Simulated assay, not measured.
Amino acid sequence: MNIIFSLDQIEEVAEQILVSNPKKIILFNGEMGVGKTTLIKQLCKSLGVESATSSPTFSLVNEYSTSNNQIVYHFDFYRLNKETEALDMGVDDYLYSGNWCFIEWSEKIASLLPEETSTITIELLSDGKRELKLA
Rank of each mutant, 00 (worst) to 15 (best):
E85Q: 14
C101Y: 00
A86G: 11
D93I: 03
F77E: 00
Y94L: 08
F77V: 01
I103M: 04
L95G: 09
Y96I: 03
I71E: 11
F102Y: 07
Y94T: 08
Y78D: 08
D92Q: 14
D76R: 08
M89A: 10
L95H: 05
F102G: 07
L87S: 11
W105C: 07
I103N: 01
H74A: 11
E104G: 05
Y73F: 15
V91L: 11
Y94K: 12
I71D: 11
Y73K: 10
W105P: 00
E83F: 05
L95A: 10
N99P: 00
D92N: 15
V91R: 10
F77K: 04
E83M: 10
L95W: 01
K82F: 12
A86T: 09
G98P: 06
D76C: 07
L80I: 09
H74N: 09
C101G: 07
K108E: 06
E83W: 05
F102D: 04
I103D: 06
F75Q: 02
D92Y: 13
K108G: 04
S97F: 05
V91C: 13
F77Y: 13
W100Q: 04
D88G: 02
T84D: 15
Y94F: 14
F77I: 03
Y78G: 09
F75P: 00
Y73E: 00
N99Q: 13
K108M: 06
Y96E: 08
L95N: 07
D88L: 08
F77W: 09
G90Q: 10
W100N: 04
H74G: 10
L80Y: 02
N81M: 11
F77P: 02
E104C: 05
D92P: 08
F102R: 07
C101Q: 01
C101M: 03
F77R: 05
L80W: 02
K108R: 14
S106I: 02
L87H: 08
L95M: 07
E107N: 14
C101R: 01
D76K: 08
Y94W: 08
Y96F: 14
L87N: 12
N81E: 15
G90T: 06
W105G: 02
D92V: 06
G98T: 06
L87K: 14
A86E: 10
R79P: 06
L95V: 06
G98S: 10
F102K: 08
F102L: 15
E104M: 05
D92A: 13
T84I: 14
G98H: 09
E104W: 03
N81T: 12
L87V: 14
N99D: 13
D76V: 01
F102C: 05
S97E: 04
D76W: 02
E104T: 03
G98D: 09
L95Y: 03
L87I: 14
Y78M: 11
H74E: 10
N81G: 13
S97P: 01
F77C: 06
R79Y: 01
W105D: 01
D93T: 10
D88N: 14
L80N: 05
G98W: 08
V91K: 10
Y96N: 13
T84V: 12
S106V: 01
W105R: 09
A86R: 03
T84M: 12
E107V: 00
A86F: 00
K82E: 15
G90W: 01
